[in-house]
Design a protein around this nucleic acid. Structure first.
Lengths: 195, 195, 195, 195
DNA sequence: GATGAATGAGCTTTCATTCAT
DNA sequence: AATGAATGAAAGCTCATTCAT
């Protein structure tokens, strides 16, 4: 039974993640979600006590997902430069295969402070993901590949850059598909961060 | 009279810019704005036919403002590296002095596609600002300072990075004030983009 | 204009007073009231910011109404016994002519503490009415007609008694019309309270 | 088994009595009650077919309880005046020891006509209690102690008075504890009702 | 140009009750 | 008897927009 309820929660998360990402938080209503799930509105509230709480669970879900992917890369026995490329690759791969995840991150989570104010202070709800970037960075420094600078300065570059590219993609202004930028971007990032 | 009307429009833009940036688009109501301006709700509609139109005028206003600042830099007779630094500086300076502008750009414009869909396709409403970055980049390439790569690849790095840092600032996770990052960031960007 | 808005507020108070008294607070909805007034739901909220606030305004309205009636009696130059009878009479008269007032007092105000908790602590919202009873009592004592006892002991008797009778009337268990009880009740009260 | 079921019904009654009295009928949900009893919502309905029915069973329960206490007094071989005092005493004693009972009576039963409409017409559900007051009154008259007046006139005085005092207590406006009013109140009531 | 009352659709959330297990 | 997920109608309240003045 526990499993079944958890499965249902997951369904709701996946479904509302897609809806929020594509229509925005305030333009997606609980009836919209319930409808898409062929579930009654009232029953939704048996799983998530409020729309805000649902939104927070989603970002945690995404952070865990991204974190796991990054962990796989961090665990590989490859050079920092190769890791850099793989991170760029996986980010764009996810942006392609599951665009709702990156979109949610960029457009819902980052932009609706008021929703995430209570319970996601700082980077709590996104901790799993940030941690892996931190590990990537610190191991790179330890290995003598990356310059030892303020972590956030490096983090801002890496993630701002990738996010920015996905934004541009979303605006349909990129002349080439995202994956054709991997070389350039990896090169730029590594050039910027390396010793 | 025309001037007076234009002045009034400007007041509305400045006021709603501040409100949208701090509370979000959907959490700022027309009565909120009217109230802040000590103006009647109905009268607001004599100046802007709808909330969405107002939002679009605001982003144009910001783009023009930022564009002008960048133009001043582009017009200076300094090295590309110096320009790079000055752009970083002015961006952070504005983020400090008029945070609502950068916030609006990052949290309202970039995140509420549905609002800007009709009328701000591509980068139309933000054209003035993007153009200056393009000029900076192309002149840098012409001067032999910057590598000749896809513009958006460079744009994404530059703007994604700066935006990312302001986001981090907003989340209060940065250990140092923004301006203390200028050196690092300028260095990283220039390192990434230079030949 | 001020007058017109005040008039409208009054209409709403009178109408919702009647509805609350007859159907109960929780069984009367804002749409019910709006409907009865041929007014839109949204517009109701231009006059009263919430259902609770409306409920509080109503009890103040009633208290003022009752207070004024009692004041007229207190101001008369008659014996305490005659005043006693007149108070009983006016109470029953109002219970007959405007039963919603007494009903609201007994069934809405006294029974829904949670609604009146904030803003009507103690007897604030009912002050006008209680004050007059207090005056009646103290003048009676001063005149040497009433025993000098704890005010609330006298107040509880007087008002509990009258309220109780109206309750019984509401339950349709009284064999006679209310006004035929005036003699008995006046006699009992005066007998109880007099020296 | 039957006994066990009856015991369970009793538990539900006691528990929901407390909840209704403290939070109000409409602010107490079936899940609230089920929760407090560590029982499932569905199972509650095996014992009481609806919330309204539960409410009616509760008032009967209270009436029986109060009735029994009064009966004990009526059966004693004491003067009417002594009986009067003992009734006041027991009423306040219960208001102190089991305030939920008196509160339920005053705030739930008397104020939510719509709930008790079908099944508790007149004073059916409260019959046990009223009967004892009637016996007290009639025996007092027979004994030559009380004036022979309309029963309800006397009942309203007695019960309205006591209820009023408990209301005042609930509003925290009484300067003294309830039991210190026993003398005054007994005196007033007996003075009013006696020949 | 200016006011603000009025509209009404729509939102989030609640809850008595049912029913499959 | 017991569980608790599911239903769905309805509640309080909001707000972009209109319009009579």
């Amino acid at each position: 039974m526990l499993d079944k309820k958890q499965q249902r929660k997951n369904d709701i998360i996946e479904c509302s993640l897609a809806l929020f990402a594509s229509k925005g938080f305030y333009n997606t209503t609980i009836p919209d979600i319930a409808n898409a799930l062929k579930m009654s509105v009232g029953n939704m509230y048996n799983y998530f006590k409020s729309k805000d709480i649902l939104a927070k669970e989603i970002i945690k879900f995404i952070s865990e997902y991204l974190g796991k992917e990054l962990r796989k890369i961090n665990e590989q026995d490859i050079t920092t430069e190769e890791k850099t490329r793989k991170i760029v690759e996986i980010y764009f791969k996810i942006a392609l295969a599951r665009p709702e995840m990156i979109d949610y991150f960029l457009r819902i989570y980052l932009s609706n402070r008021e929703v995430f104010k209570d319970g996601c202070e700082g980077m709590i709800c996104v901790n799993e993901f940030v941690t892996e970037i931190m590990i990537y960075f610190e191991e790179g420094v330890t290995a003598g590949d990356l310059r030892d600078q303020d972590f956030f300065s490096a983090f801002g570059l890496f993630m701002g850059y990738l996010g920015g590219m996905v934004f541009l993609k979303g605006e349909s202004v990129l002349p080439k598909p995202l994956d054709e930028y991997v070389d350039d971007i990896t090169f730029n990032i590594y050039k910027a961060l390396s010793v």
